[in-house]
Write a protein that binds this DNA or RNA. Sequence first.
DNA 1: GACCTGCTGCGGACTG
Length: 712
Amino acid sequence: MYELLSEPIRRYVREKKWDSLRPIQSASIQKVMQSEDNLILASRTASGKTEAAFLPILSRVNFNDPGVQVLYISPLIALINDQFIRVQELCEHLDVPVTKWHGEASQTLKNKLVSDPRGVVLITPESIEAMLVNSEYKAKGLFSNLKFIVIDEIHAFLGTDRGKQLQSLIFRLRQFNTGNVRVIGLSATIGSFEQAKEMVGPVDSTRILRDTTGKEIETEFKYFEQGNLTELPLALLKDLYLSVCNSKVLIFPNARGTAEEVAVKLHKISQKVGGHPYYFSHHSSVHKELREYIEAFAKNNVRYPFAIACTSTLELGIDIGSVDRVVQINATHSIAGLIQRIGRSGRRNDETSKLSLYATDPWNLLQGIACITLFKREGFVEPIEYTEKPYDIFLHQALAQVRQVSECTQEELIHKLSINSSFKFIPPDEMKEIVTHLQQTDLLELIGGKLIIGVEGEKIVNTKDFYSVFQTEPLFKVQVQDKPIGEIPYSYLTKVDQNILLAARIWKIIDIDIRAKRITVIPAMDGKKPVFSGFGGEVHPKIRQEMLRLLITDAEMPPMSEDAAEAIRQLKLEFEHYKIEDFEVDRPLRVQVKDMYWYSFHGTRVNGSLSFLFDVAGITHERWDLESKFKFDAGDFELIIQKAMKAYDVLEPYLVSAVEKDPALLSFSKFGAYLPLKYQVHLVRDKRFDFAGAMDFLSTAHTSSIHTHTNS
DNA sequence: GACCTGCTGCGGACTG
């Protein structure tokens, strides 16, 4: 395939002294050079996807044509800065200018590009939105002669609001391109590609090039019981220290606070025993410059071992080189996330990836094992959840498009939105109803037959927060009387009388000053556990089913420490007498004197929906998601199931009143609150719950009961 | 029991 490349690009490949092109690169070169298809290039991290896209694109495009020829879109500024260096190096051979265009990029260089639009531009979705909304003429001047759009890390957009927005932005860019714009998405290996196809363009002209060769994954599981401790067990930290002190490792503890704890404590142990000082933490609350320093250290350092305790900030494709081992503390919520993390390890191409999972309770251990066994046995990765009717993104894009053209008729607006594939499942009469509602609420205004942004709309559109569709929480200062004790994100859970955990103590909120962003607290008198939860990660039903299978059968388990094996043995003992044959439907029920416990072994969303149905039916219960366990008063369980199923018939009014009473139910959506109520309810139902799944489960579930006389 | 992501255009002060 090398022969298909242009001479300057061949020279680049020769200078790089690569032994050969990677499979994904050869496949991509052929399809980019010899077809007009849109492409999805899917292969694991660090397999040369950027080059796979850019080598043939740069060979094929004539950069003497007017306007920007190639638009590269990335979900992260950090990734743009990272890729800029690589793309620039490639483009030097062709004398093609490369320009970064994001909020932190040089205004001078952006202005220079506007006066002489050429070459390659690296941009974020929000910067595209801002340009379209504020100065359509600029976007037209730059981007009306595009040949290629490259979307990096496209899996990070799939199934998200930001992805829907990006899909719409690509559509809007295509609108003023008369020629064909080809789109190439770069992706990690993911469960399904249908949505990726939707995003890049017409489904039938999109090809998927997939390099499935993965690295071997070597796992070990360890167990250190945490019990009621709020901090990690000392034995875990000591074991972890010994296992990582001479290697380059990433440690993922699932939470920012724990990441800090791990970094600080490992460093302390290292100081005591005269080990290396390279222990870092990397997450969103760590200052940006420090994060960049850590990334550069990891990438450029060859001599020293290091450990970075981090969150998902190090899951995406920023180049930090490769590490020897990845440590996961407790289970991830998704297999997709776990695989991304594991992919960071294995120094050379042919070397195995190494994962150590440290669990602090038996259910987390079981979930971690279930994720790995499912992936290894079936290659299972969660399919992407698809929202057919993203009414809130529709509303955002309606406002954006009116602002983009300053004024247009209602018919023109509806037409633009109707032909936009992002909203193809929203029928025109629903579009009209929403646009009419926007006029009634002064977000839009009809003047002389033309729609313009209304008085209330100006407040939303005329702020820089308008360009992104994801919700962010501002940080609030927390103080006792006048003494500040820290900062927490303000969310719907932050209410007067609510208990919060901060600076290792429990507090009760007595006042919230929204304008001053200040929360006043007093020490909490009751020892009640602070409620921080709400909607955490969602675990897929298949993982829970696999957990049940591992408990009930003598299925082979991956290698684990003696303590881990013992924890699993104990858990299996609890379930050994239930008669579970069909893992889809047979579920354990433990009946005690006063209470009974039912294990659904189902996904987070169905469990939440079951809980809502029990509430509607007036059934008192408690719920634990990790164990997928429900507690009821002892009684007739069949009657509970029947009542819950009947509750489904009267569900709608309960949902409507829940959304009306508690706007927090919609807190996942930045613009949802501006919709008519019925569409708000639809969004809540669609994104938060799975009532169909819950009903399906209730109608088929069988219980296997065991009666005990204790009441522990 | 979570984690993460991004941001215009203008006027005015200041620097070299």
